[in-house]
């Protein structure tokens, strides 16, 4: 039983959102907070070095925003394809 074409499109759009959001997730935590933390530490946010701030504060704020953006995007997608509940 092959899934209808619309379901396949819905799934592909879902995967595209995931790719974008997970790229941001990786960038703020692993890139800004760890791999390039030393370089970013030359910049400052308030009284903190930027790389250090991303590792202990900034990445967490972005994580929260990411989930709410995901919820918004997916609810819109569910409606577009009529697969919501």
């Amino acid at each position: 039983m092959a899934p209808p074409e619309e379901y396949r499109q819905y799934w592909r759009a879902n995967l595209r959102y995931l790719a974008i959001l997970l790229t941001i997730w990786f960038a703020v935590s692993f890139c800004c907070g760890i791999l390039f933390a030393d370089e970013l530490n030359r910049l400052r946010i308030g009284g903190a070095k930027l790389g250090f701030w991303f590792a202990q504060q900034g990445s967490i704020y972005v994580f929260v925003v990411l989930i709410f953006v995901y919820v918004y995007l997916m609810n819109r997608l569910d409606e577009k394809y009529g697969v919501g509940e």
Partner: peptide, 14 residues
């Protein structure tokens, strides 16, 4: 800090 919060992004999305 990152490990125990970033996991929720994986949980929510995947």
């Amino acid at each position: 800090l990152m490990g125990w919060t970033g996991g929720y992004v994986l949980l929510a999305l995947l």
